[in-house]
Amino acid sequence: MIDWFSYGCIGLGLVFWFWGTSFLLSQRSVLFKLHNLSVSDTLGSIAIIFGLLLQRPREWPLLLLAILSLTLWNTMLGYVLAYCSSSGLITRRPPHG
């Protein structure tokens, strides 16, 4: 029973990963991609790690630490990337093609 729940969590996380990463291939702006990618990557990774947590409850401190650092750092990295990419040489460039 709990095995199937864990598999469901991992499968949900994989769906999130594929859904968010597929936006990378589209021709939208960087900020749009960044938003989708950070949301889906963070949520998907958390779902996968939660599924792993159900598989091995013995390793809970490690996986909990992973979830915490993932949420904090991914949010911060998303903010920093948005801040950096919205000003500077790169946006001053005319778009190619």
């Binding site: 990463t21 960087v30 990618l37 990337l81 790169i90």
Partner: peptide, 9 residues
């Protein structure tokens, strides 16, 4: 920045 985005991913 797209490359950077894929790097973080």
């Amino acid at each position: 920045w797209q490359t950077m985005l894929s790097l973080s991913s």
